[in-house]
Computed example of a mutant assay.
Amino acid sequence: MRFNFFKIFILMVLLSTAFLSVHANEASDFERQTGLASYYSDKLQGRSTASGQPYDKDKLSAAHLSLPFGTLLRVTNLANGKHVIIPVNDRGPYRDKRIIDVSRKAAEALDMISAGIIKVSIEIQK
C-alpha cells in the first residue's frame, strides 16, 4: 500500500510541475489582449473562486481563462482611458468574445457599472 501511495505522489508532483510550466510560459508569451469585459454579479459574493479564495465584491480581482493565479493585469477601459491593476484569482469568462471578468470594485474603478460590458485592453503588469 505504501509503495502505491509513493508512486501516486510522484506522479502528482510531475504532473503539477508540467502544468505550472505550461502556464508560466503562457504568461511570458502574453503581451496584450483587447476584447470585452464584464463584471461579477453580486450574487456570487462569498462563493469560492477557482483559486480557492472567496469572491469579495469589495476587493480587486479578475477571472481570466488561462493566465496563472496571482498575475497582475493592467485593465484599461478603452472608452474613457480609466485603468486599474487587478490580480487574477479565478477562471473565466465563459461567454463569447469576453476576455476578462472583474469584481465590482474593479468595475467601479473602470466606470463600467452602468454599461455592464465594455471594451478593454489587458496587459500583464511587470
Rank of each mutant, 00 (worst) to 15 (best):
M1D: 12
M1C: 07
R2M: 05
F3I: 09
F3N: 08
F6R: 06
F6E: 05
F6C: 03
K7V: 06
K7E: 05
K7G: 02
K7Q: 07
K7Y: 03
F9T: 01
L15Q: 09
L15W: 12
L15R: 05
S16Q: 06
S16P: 00
T17L: 08
A18E: 10
A18Y: 12
A18P: 04
A18G: 11
F19V: 13
F19G: 06
L20E: 07
V22K: 09
V22E: 11
A24M: 11
A24H: 12
N25S: 14
A27T: 10
S28H: 13
D29G: 15
E31I: 15
E31N: 14
R32V: 13
Q33C: 09
Q33F: 14
T34V: 10
G35L: 12
L36P: 05
S38K: 02
S41M: 01
D42A: 07
L44F: 11
L44D: 01
Q45S: 02
Q45K: 01
Q45H: 06
R47L: 13
S48I: 08
T49A: 05
T49P: 03
T49G: 03
A50K: 07
S51Q: 06
G52T: 12
G52N: 10
Q53L: 15
Q53D: 08
P54Y: 06
P54L: 10
Y55N: 00
D56I: 03
D56V: 03
K57P: 01
K57L: 00
K57R: 05
D58M: 02
K59R: 13
L60R: 02
L60A: 03
H64T: 04
H64C: 07
H64D: 11
H64W: 04
L65R: 14
L65I: 14
L67S: 04
L67Q: 05
P68V: 07
T71E: 04
L72N: 14
L72R: 14
L73I: 13
L73V: 09
L73F: 10
L73R: 07
R74I: 09
R74W: 12
V75S: 07
V75W: 05
T76H: 09
T76G: 13
T76C: 11
T76S: 15
L78D: 14
N80Y: 08
N80W: 15
G81C: 13
K82L: 09
K82Y: 08
K82G: 08
H83G: 13
V84L: 06
I85C: 07
I86L: 05
P87G: 11
P87Y: 08
P87V: 13
V88A: 09
V88S: 08
D96F: 09
K97D: 08
R98Y: 04
I99Y: 14
I99W: 11
I99K: 14
I100E: 02
D101R: 00
V102T: 02
S103V: 00
S103H: 00
K105E: 00
A106N: 00
E108V: 03
E108S: 03
A109Q: 12
L110A: 02
L110I: 04
D111G: 04
D111R: 01
I113F: 03
I113S: 01
A115G: 02
G116T: 03
I117E: 12
I118D: 01
K119F: 14
K119N: 15
S121D: 06
S121A: 15
E123A: 09
I124D: 07
Q125I: 13
Q125H: 15
K126I: 05
